Amino acid sequence: MDMQRAPRSPVALTAELDEPLSRWLWLVKWLLVIPHWIVLFFLWIAFLLTTVIAFFAILFTERYPQALFDFNLGVLRWSWRVSYYSYSALGTDRYPPFSLGAEPGYPARLDIARPERLSRGLVLVKWWLLAIPHYLILAFFAGGMRAGLWSIGLISLLSLFAGVAVLFTGRYPRDLFVLIVGLNRWVFRVVVYAFLMTDVYPPFRLDQGGAESVPGEGR
């Protein structure tokens, strides 16, 4: 029954596999994306600050300010494009634009349906308590620091497998592509929820493939 269905995720992460891909370019993308990493370092500092402001705005008004939402969406879009170009997918050789905008011509895109209202109660607990099960999963997907050592996550490992396949065969395995995009989609859904941009709890579901749409799109 429709009444029993979980709300659809407001996060639409899409990707198109660019082919043919350079056999060797992925080996040096770590160097090519350094300018983006520098800019994103400061953008994520601003992202955290705007999220704190949004926290209090939601607490008192039940609304996420439009300007802050648009800025944070822009940071996430930029991050997804850089991730897709580099070692979270290696799905394109097109250099990511330095832009907070939607960039509809780029093969990696992200959109989020802005909620009209957000729960005052959820804003107090969803980013640390309710999201804990997803954080445990994301630690496996994305890796990170553990006991002073840097561990590579599943997404980067699978992307490196794809890079090796491209190096030796000139082709990106299609099944690997849809899996990698699905894993990234899970990560971004959790990030959007944890940073207060939606009250829709991320599904424990791997939605594979490159295509997705925002709820209400096309109506």
Score class of each variant (00 low, 15 high):
residue 85 Y to V: 10
residue 85 Y to F: 15
residue 86 S to R: 14
residue 86 S to L: 13
residue 87 Y to K: 10
residue 87 Y to P: 03
residue 87 Y to C: 12
residue 88 S to I: 01
residue 88 S to R: 14
residue 88 S to M: 14
residue 89 A to Q: 11
residue 90 L to I: 13
residue 92 T to L: 03
residue 92 T to K: 01
residue 92 T to W: 01
residue 93 D to H: 04
residue 93 D to Y: 05
residue 94 R to H: 08
residue 94 R to C: 01
residue 94 R to Y: 00
residue 97 P to R: 09
residue 97 P to T: 02
residue 98 F to H: 04
residue 98 F to V: 12
residue 100 L to K: 13
residue 100 L to E: 11
residue 101 G to D: 14
residue 101 G to W: 02
residue 102 A to R: 06
residue 102 A to S: 10
residue 103 E to Y: 00
residue 103 E to N: 05
residue 105 G to E: 15
residue 105 G to M: 00
residue 105 G to W: 01
residue 106 Y to V: 04
residue 107 P to V: 02
residue 107 P to M: 06
residue 107 P to I: 00
residue 108 A to S: 04
residue 109 R to V: 00
residue 110 L to M: 12
residue 111 D to V: 00
residue 111 D to C: 01
residue 111 D to A: 15
residue 112 I to V: 14
residue 112 I to D: 03
residue 112 I to L: 13
residue 113 A to G: 11
residue 113 A to Y: 04
residue 113 A to V: 14
residue 114 R to Q: 12
residue 114 R to W: 08
residue 115 P to F: 07
residue 117 R to N: 00
residue 117 R to L: 12
residue 118 L to F: 02
residue 119 S to Y: 00
residue 120 R to P: 00
residue 120 R to G: 00
residue 122 L to Y: 11
residue 124 L to I: 05
residue 126 K to Q: 15
residue 127 W to Y: 13
residue 128 W to A: 10
residue 128 W to L: 14
residue 129 L to T: 02
residue 129 L to G: 01
residue 129 L to N: 02
residue 130 L to C: 09
residue 130 L to S: 10
residue 130 L to F: 10
residue 130 L to E: 07
residue 130 L to G: 05
residue 132 I to R: 02
residue 133 P to C: 04
residue 135 Y to Q: 13
residue 135 Y to G: 10
residue 136 L to A: 13
residue 136 L to R: 01
residue 136 L to I: 12
residue 136 L to Q: 01
residue 136 L to D: 05
residue 136 L to E: 00
residue 137 I to Q: 14
residue 137 I to N: 13
residue 138 L to P: 01
residue 138 L to E: 10
residue 138 L to F: 06
residue 138 L to I: 06
residue 138 L to Q: 09
residue 141 F to D: 13
residue 142 A to C: 15
residue 143 G to F: 08
residue 144 G to E: 12
residue 144 G to I: 14
residue 144 G to H: 07
residue 144 G to F: 08
residue 145 M to F: 14
residue 146 R to L: 15
residue 146 R to T: 11
residue 147 A to T: 05
residue 148 G to Y: 06
residue 148 G to K: 07
residue 149 L to Q: 15
residue 150 W to R: 15
residue 151 S to D: 02
residue 151 S to L: 09
residue 151 S to M: 00
residue 153 G to L: 09
residue 154 L to R: 08
residue 154 L to Y: 05
residue 154 L to W: 10
residue 155 I to P: 01
residue 155 I to E: 08
residue 155 I to R: 03
residue 157 L to D: 08
residue 158 L to W: 07
residue 158 L to S: 04
residue 158 L to G: 06
residue 159 S to W: 11
residue 159 S to Q: 07
residue 160 L to Q: 13
residue 160 L to D: 06
residue 161 F to S: 14
residue 162 A to G: 14
residue 163 G to W: 05
residue 164 V to W: 10
residue 164 V to Q: 04
residue 164 V to T: 13
residue 165 A to L: 15
residue 165 A to P: 11
residue 166 V to D: 09
residue 166 V to W: 05
residue 167 L to N: 11
residue 168 F to V: 15
residue 168 F to N: 12
residue 170 G to H: 02
residue 171 R to C: 04
residue 173 P to L: 08
residue 173 P to T: 07
residue 174 R to S: 05
residue 174 R to V: 08
residue 175 D to L: 15
residue 176 L to T: 07
residue 176 L to V: 10
residue 177 F to K: 06
residue 178 V to K: 09
residue 178 V to W: 08
residue 179 L to N: 07
residue 179 L to Q: 11
residue 181 V to M: 08
residue 181 V to R: 05
residue 181 V to D: 09
residue 182 G to H: 03
